[in-house]
Design a binder for these strands. Structure first.
Lengths: 350, 350
DNA sequence: TTGAAAGCGCTAACAC
DNA sequence: GTGTTAGCGCTTTCAA
């Protein structure tokens, strides 16, 4: 029965009849220092007996290390962030660190959050998974003496990052549609000024060009990265006189929104319109029809960034610059061959 | 320009020409202690000048308070947990606390995680959002001297909890189907031994009884709380010679899995089968057809539990026992009137 | 109203 | 191999 009050290293040392420092040596994987086997046993026994648990705070004060990583995430509702967190948490744990999470509301104009996270000496390093390309963020980051890695985008004046190859992902998605015979393809883009938004748009265009498609075969509508954004963008798209036969959505959530609108309008997927999205998660399989996606290694991004950050902290690296390629196309049921003739001018075959 | 090295309270005191303790008094909202206005100004100015940020670790060591709450979550993929976290984070921040997150893998048989979380003095209290009704967990909790609140279930021998009224939620969902004329109703249950699983099943049965339906009008299949669980359960259900016309799913994810199977089998929703689920999230609106749900105040659960925990920590409460009622039915398109005659024995009216 | 000083629990020199 | 000791940065008596 452990005592009601937490036992300290001093208690252990006393119980084992050794000096404080000896107990400390035994309980840490002493480096270089050798301790007699008998002594070590006594200390270990005492620690077990007293249910000793090192006080992380005291250790942190002494070593200026907390073995805690801060992670700032916006929008926990977007499945991409939980996925990143899962990856980060696993990698952190593997390296002996914990994760302090901070949900940064997007509306949080004060950015006090970043400062709070960055300022205090409670974390050894920072993972920043923001959606914004804010200079504000870069500034806040600049004031911290702790290493950090920015997730999912590169920021001006910020060195360390872990990103997806968004260009390649969009190219892959678009090429898939092209290979199915689609010629009029629209892009539900992310934020047109955002890091990933611009790159996915560029990849989309590059694929069209590579297939020799004329410029007017393309249609781009910003949809942001939310379900609602997808709804709004798709509604607008349907107002066009000529409908595309294929859609490349920059995000899975936007694709889901688009599909909702298509269902509402009675547009058959993929009969009349195919849709492919970038990013993959269980949700893609819940949609109807199940959504074809280009899979992004989201957990791996969180994990790689975390490993890089820990390397930074432990002086094993001086910079982190990670770019992860897409993991390939996950073929589901939302894409199919291009429908026969163009709906506008009925012709040869039904 | 702040110095490259973090400045300490001693630096501030020196710069202001006062004693360390005086600086401390100024910088904390000194209690009872009065400081001369002039002194206070000087200290404040010095702190600003030096970009002083209190060292949370040192403070924590001294006060034995970290203003950090630990939260253990399994399965971040299930949208219910991110939602809880968002609520918890907001409430924590409101009270001046941060959230230390720990992803507890379900397979983690060692339960070292709980101990890790519970043991160290890095958190002032613990939020536990586990899926398991483990005695293991109760044991781990028992060894910590920190207050804790268990989310989403009551555990034997564990006092503090915040739960949903699962019984009422299931009753509400079932009553909805009954009011639409459904008589043969199946229940995709949660875990039959789980806290919520048993209560939702009980609510389901109570509603049937209240409507005077015979016992054989009911069919119960455990589906767990995952998409895959829903798929498997629904497949099994469809093997029955007599199909139900309505389904009450204990979780949204299971409902999504069930819908996938129904689509695959060409069963019209709600034309041939209606489905209602407990729990609501954006996903419900992404499904096709959009899923009717009984909304649960998930964020609020996280927030209430957190407030309760902080009260516990700060001695403002001696126990936390929160039960949150469902927020009502969110009528979408997956439920509708019962289809004509029963397929097995056609009778009186169409 | 302010200052001096003790000490939270621990690690890491340094001495023996 | 083991013990002694000096702090890490802070809050909080206790004295002045």
């Amino acid at each position: 029965m452990p005592p009601s009050t937490e036992s300290t290293l001093a208690d252990v040392a006393q119980a084992a009849g050794v000096a404080l420092s000896t107990a400390s040596r035994v309980l840490n994987g002493e480096r270089g220092h050798r301790v007699a086997a008998a002594t070590r046993e006594r200390v270990l026994a005492a620690a077990r007996e007293l249910d000793y648990r090192p006080n992380a705070i005291a250790r942190g004060l002494r070593t200026a290390r907390t073995f805690t990583l801060g992670i700032a995430v916006p929008q926990l509702e977007n499945p991409v962030f939980p996925q990143m967190i899962v990856g980060a948490e696993a990698a952190a744990r593997e390296r002996g660190y914990s994760l302090l999470i901070s949900h940064v509301a997007e509306s949080d104009t004060e950015s006090r959050t970043y400062e709070r996270l960055a300022s205090v000496s409670r974390v050894d390093g920072l993972l920043v998974a923001t959606l914004e390309d804010e200079t504000r963020l870069a500034q806040a980051l600049a004031t911290t003496s702790r290493p950090y890695v920015v997730l999912n985008r590169k920021l001006r004046g910020v060195d360390n990052h872990a990103v997806f190859d968004s260009f390649a992902a969009a190219e892959m998605a678009t090429a898939h549609l092209i290979s199915l015979g689609h010629r009029r393809i629209a892009h539900l883009a992310g934020r047109l000024k955002g890091y990933n938004g611009t790159r996915r748009l560029a990849g989309f265009r590059a694929a069209l060009r590579a297939a020799g498609l004329p410029r007017d075969a393309e249609r781009v509508i910003p949809a942001g990265y939310t379900f609602e954004g997808g709804v709004i963008a798709m509604r607008e798209l349907l107002r066009d006189p000529v409908r595309p036969t294929g859609i490349v959505a920059a995000t899975m959530l936007a694709a889901a929104g688009a599909m909702k609108v298509l269902h509402g309008e009675g547009v058959a997927i993929p009969g009349e319109m195919s849709i492919v999205a970038i990013h993959d998660a269980t949700i893609a399989d819940m949609l109807y029809p199940p959504l074809t996606t280009v899979r992004l290694p989201v957990q791996e991004l969180g994990a790689s960034a975390t490993r890089g950050l820990v390397d930074l902290i432990e002086g094993k690296a001086t910079g982190v610059a990670i770019t992860l390629p897409p993991q390939g196309l996950v073929l589901r049921a939302s894409t199919g061959p291009v429908p026969g003739p163009a709906p506008k001018r009925p012709s040869r075959r039904a």
